[in-house]
Design a binder for these strands. Structure first.
Lengths: 215, 215
DNA sequence: ACTAAATAATAAATGTTATTCAATTATTAT
DNA sequence: ATAATAATTGAATAACATTTATTATTTAGT
């Protein structure tokens, strides 16, 4: 392994060690010494690549999100229908989470609620992912597959909010069962929410708001 | 103000200062000195009431959650119908969040994703609140108001997940609009999700699963 | 192959901040 | 008023992120 390659490998190794230790102990209780040791480097060497402990934390998602993003974009080209695309997108997201639980813990338990991180370049990849969901919803509304009478912002909030809530609970409970078991029931709930019933001319209640709610 | 009263008042003052400063800077960047100064006390005095900085953080929600819990329990006695009760419960939660944005930031941005906090006594009050939601859902399923064919866990995950997602986004975007503006559209989405359509004997599609999804 | 420059790597030094402790002031009870 | 107790704090300690100065290693020119 030559110079720059070795360097890249070492950098990756630090990022991996950081992911593992941050996910286990949280940002607070993880120390640079511990991470450096796990990566086989000295404390000071960590600072060659990452200006601060926080910058090290913020550097974790980039590569993951890019990989997930590209993977989803590739598969979506092969899928017809907005609801099917949405299904595939959320499924791939959940698969990725379930296969990378340490990264997921860092992302959902530490980063996603961090104001500083949100205003970082590194957060761009996460917004790119959300744009895919928005695109699917838009396509579905235009094609008539998905309800048009709800602000798409609330649709997306419900989809992403439910999914992340379930993943976060899974993480906090110590990942007892296979995360993928939750996917179909959850997506079924979401379908109820977003998907128009097929046209039924003799049954007008189906295609309009029809439920009165006493005040 | 006599001894023990003064003490309680000072303790509250520290908690308030901590809430404010934690919500502004995050746990990381807030210092005990800063909190002590804001509360008009010395650094060492903070440790009279709170054993560690983390314990101070964990002590913030108790009183808030108790107040919210009692308030909801009181009002629910006056309301008939599971969906109405759910509406009122989520509404009161959102009102509380919107009226106590600093506490809400501490709760939703710092505490809710903290493994140590989850295993703390202080977290009990939060579980009590969730039990109210569960009770409403159960009542609704039993009375036929709410779909019985979905695991209630996913219903609750969707309700709470959506609501918190919206509140977290509101916090992270700097609380630009009135949070309550989001409530009715959000609850409408949730109703689509949970509420059975009224019985329509001549329209069997309404009361059963009827949507085929191509594979 | 040899050396100068550049780069990689680290040990030790520094500064900040949570936490503890010993000392001081205020309050209460007798 | 005085002893006893509680409240309060300034100063000491320790852990840890970050910097600096120094040493080892690689690279490129001859």
């Amino acid at each position: 392994m030559t110079g720059p390659e070795k360097t890249e490998a070492r950098k990756s190794k630090i990022l991996e060690a950081a992911t593992k230790i941050f996910s286990e102990k949280g940002f607070q209780d993880a120390t640079i010494s511990e991470i450096a040791k796990a990566a086989g480097a000295s404390d000071a060497f960590v600072y060659e690549y990452f200006s601060t402990k926080e910058n090290l934390l913020f550097s974790i998602p980039r590569e993951h999100m890019q990989k997930l993003f590209e993977n989803i974009e590739f598969h979506l080209k092969l899928i017809r229908g907005a609801v099917n695309k949405l299904h595939a997108t959320l499924y791939m997201q959940l698969i990725y989470y379930s296969e990378h639980p340490e990264f997921t813990a860092v992302l959902l338990l530490i980063l996603k609620h961090n104001r500083k991180f949100i205003n970082t370049d590194a957060h761009k990849e996460i917004r790119d992912y959300l744009k895919i969901v928005d695109r699917c919803l838009k396509e579905g509304v235009e094609s008539g597959e998905i309800y048009a009478d709800i602000d798409p912002y609330y649709l997306r909030a419900t989809l992403i909010g439910s999914l992340e809530h379930i993943v976060i609970n899974w993480l906090l409970r110590g990942k007892p069962e296979n995360l993928m078991d939750a996917f179909e029931p959850m997506f079924e709930v979401c379908l109820k929410l977003i998907q128009k019933k097929p046209e039924t001319p003799n049954c007008p209640l189906l295609s309009q708001k029809n439920v009165e709610q006493e005040p």
